[in-house]
Write a protein that binds this DNA or RNA. Structure first.
Lengths: 197, 197
DNA sequence: CGATTACTTGACACGGTGTCAAGTGACTTG
DNA sequence: CAAGTCACTTGACACCGTGTCAAGTAATCG
């Protein structure tokens, strides 16, 4: 892939990102993206032959720009299970708003597009692994609530941290981001961590 | 509205219901519904001029058939707040699978259709009122957790009981319906009810 | 110089929604 | 019983968004 080609590709990804951020109505068409990137609709198709492909590439692009891995480092470095749980909720919970635009578009698309469904599912599995690691750390410390198996605890945390829950609490319920993070931490602790006597 | 007219209308609603139940892929088109109902596509449009209108009518039809109100009666009759919370989780949590087909279609539609978005939102507000009533009952009994305001507790319960959470736990996590209900009750209690000393 | 690369313009097929017009067959009702 | 209305049919068509195809252009490179 030549220099110019890559340059255009990045312009496209930037354009997609920007449009999905500002027009959350999911009414973002291929033609809009092409216009925003300053190229023809067909040039866009030369780079990404399907809309799903473009959306998937955009999420990866954002991950790269935002440095997901770096942001998850504190979570991995946590000494105790409880710290790890908090750090993970911080990291992922604060990452959601940054990817929300693309996430919403991808979520809408996965209903009808196989590739989009797969890409989203893989992404969510990665989050699940983060949840699982936190739960395992709790189990190791003996601080995992006896109410739940590791699997069940992971399922619960993963579900609590879904993009749709974030969406509902922030948009429908009018919670601030800070409130979302803190309340989620509180509930996660109360539900997943053993009562201390 | 004449007898025959009403008869056809019901055939349409039954057909829609059935197709949405068995083909959860959301790939249910107006033509499919018409065929299933044994009428022409245009006759379908004579009864419901928009797809959104048909979906909305179908949810109302299902509510009527299933008797939502009756199912919520035990919740309203509960003596204590805790009983009311449990009864509400039972009622709504077990209702979700029965409306899941249409719910999914409506959820998909609300992204692009204003009327669908409104209808869904109203429906969810009704559920929210149920949550609110349960929380108020806890507050009245003095059993509401001091960690949350009534508003916040309502938001939490409402979000816990979302269709998407049910979907994730049942489909992605493989939980049984029974497990879903029981674990939801457990978490709701742990989170929303004051610790007894 | 000629070939390749990156892009443009414009046309078009497809699938799904929603509309329009003309026609048919049945069942009211003056 | 004739006229009208009601419920529906058939078939065409416009619109939109995705994705494809073909021909042309302008810059770059060996």
């Amino acid at each position: 892939m030549s220099r110019k080609n890559l340059e255009t590709r990045n312009r496209i990804l930037d354009a997609t990102w920007k449009l999905l951020e500002e027009r959350l109505d999911t009414g973002v068409r291929m033609a809009d993206i092409a216009r925003q990137a300053g190229i023809s609709r067909q040039a866009l198709y030369l780079h990404f032959s399907k809309r799903a492909e473009l959306l998937i590439a955009t999420t990866q692009y954002i991950d790269e720009m935002k440095g997901v891995d770096a942001r998850l480092a504190p979570s991995r470095a946590a000494a105790t299970g409880i710290e790890r749980l908090d750090a993970f909720i911080d990291a992922w919970g604060n990452y959601i708003p940054e990817i929300y635009g693309v996430a919403k578009a991808l979520l809408a698309m996965k209903e009808s597009d196989e590739a989009a469904a797969l890409a989203w599912s893989e992404r969510m599995q990665a989050v699940r692994h983060g949840c699982e690691a936190a739960i395992k750390a709790l189990a190791r410390d003996g601080t995992l609530s006896p109410d739940h198996s590791q699997k069940q605890a992971t399922d619960i945390l993963w579900t609590m941290l879904s993009v749709r829950n974030w969406e509902q609490l922030r948009s429908e319920c009018g919670w601030s981001q800070k409130r979302y993070i803190e309340t989620t931490k509180l509930i996660a602790r109360g539900t997943l961590v053993v009562e201390q006597g």
